[in-house]
Design a protein around this nucleic acid. Sequence first.
DNA 1: CGAATAGTGTCTCTCAGACAATATTGC
DNA 2: GCAATATTGTCTGAGAGACACTATTCG
Lengths: 257, 257
Amino acid sequence: MPSHRDESETAFLRAYDPSAHPPFAVTVDVVLLTVREGVLSVLLVERETHPFRGQLALPGGFVQADEDLDAAAVHRLEQETGVRRSVAHVEQLGAFGDPGRDPRMRVVSVPYLVFAPDLPAPTAGAGARWVAWVPVRAVEPDRLAFDHAAVLAAGVERARAKLEYSPVATAFCREEFTIGELRRVYEAVWGVPLDPRNFHRKTTGADGFLVPVGRDSIPGPEGGRPAALYQRGDATLLHPAMLRPGAPDTGTAGRRR
Amino acid sequence: MPSHRDESETAFLRAYDPSAHPPFAVTVDVVLLTVREGVLSVLLVERETHPFRGQLALPGGFVQADEDLDAAAVHRLEQETGVRRSVAHVEQLGAFGDPGRDPRMRVVSVPYLVFAPDLPAPTAGAGARWVAWVPVRAVEPDRLAFDHAAVLAAGVERARAKLEYSPVATAFCREEFTIGELRRVYEAVWGVPLDPRNFHRKTTGADGFLVPVGRDSIPGPEGGRPAALYQRGDATLLHPAMLRPGAPDTGTAGRRR
DNA sequence: CGAATAGTGTCTCTCAGACAATATTGC
DNA sequence: GCAATATTGTCTGAGAGACACTATTCG
């Protein structure tokens, strides 16, 4: 904010009455998504106070008077879910402010979408209230508090779209991961099976998406050839993009024998 | 919001004190974009009150206590710019809420991005203050009030991305338009020249993007063959997408003689 | 006719999806 | 060997960009 205060402005500000505008409260909510056991899941908390006491809700809370929105979201994330911002992807999801979405008063919620790897102890909330990972497909929209069903739906839709043209899918993986693990992220978020061979070719071919570590993973309990390990590259946009199959498929791509 | 009020909740709400949370004000701002004479332009107003009196700003205003955010944005759009929502595309752009972005008090702004055709009299603002179309490239970021430079930048970037995968570019055109007019929209928003022949093939080939009217336009002042008229189709997603050229072009697509 | 715009067609290269085939590992 | 996963390669068709060519209008 540059320096363009003059005397009349100073006087104006001194006389300014904040109650001249309708009072709002502002909250941040966190849509924390992860992939556990091949299933896209969201972290939900049980509300311990009214309104919606006892119901499931997204973690979140009121923004303090001098608190930046992004900082407030990261704060809630770290305090209530135990996820460190450094391992996660965080982005603002929009603003939800229907009158009546909170029975207490007029509240505008600014939800944040977070992607995190499946961490060992993400349930270590400071709020001492019950938290749990719930598969997104198992969430009953009518049982969520406030308008959190709509917020969650917006977050999941955004996640599905983002995986197409940005490399954020790696945020669901640990620092080093295999192509197979990355593929299971895409399959879980999109809810469709993908051809491992084409997926391998596309991800390793996309500019700056993945950087080979040079080592191999140890095979899982079912055996199989060890896979090469990768880290995320420095690309911010995926080129070529990873297009979702099935969606708006016009016609006869490829052959079908 | 279903019926899960019980007695203790009713009591809780009756005793609730709204001043328990930091007081915020909420505004909606309108990033109204159009293409005039081949140039992407934004509608700006001159502020007639403090703060930032006399400086350029996006049109907007405080949200009333019982006003829906979307409705508030459409209201400001129609009142301050004279654009009817029916001819425009309106979408929420996010939330901007840095402490200090408004010197009066803590204000969270929810900007809305609007695409409208180049209307004959869009300057008929009810607020009686001076409004003008300014080419986006000619906007001096430091001269805008509040954080409106960042809001405008976010809006323009969103517009550029949306033209790729959604058919919203037609919102910049009148009800009936030619492929050439649509192409000039893409060229203005993206800031790059496009091959008219490839553009024609791609737009008419994209599923549900355009519906031919069956009539031809009258040629412009420079003559030329009359062009077929089209209306927007019912597609919500563009398939195949209209990819921006130049951006992350890896390598040698096509040949170069 | 020349300038300007509209529209069609052709060519080549990239990329997507369908699979075949091979490589490694655990059991 | 067999099951399971990883990786490479091959084929076909869709689609992008470069650009030749034709069509139609105005002056």
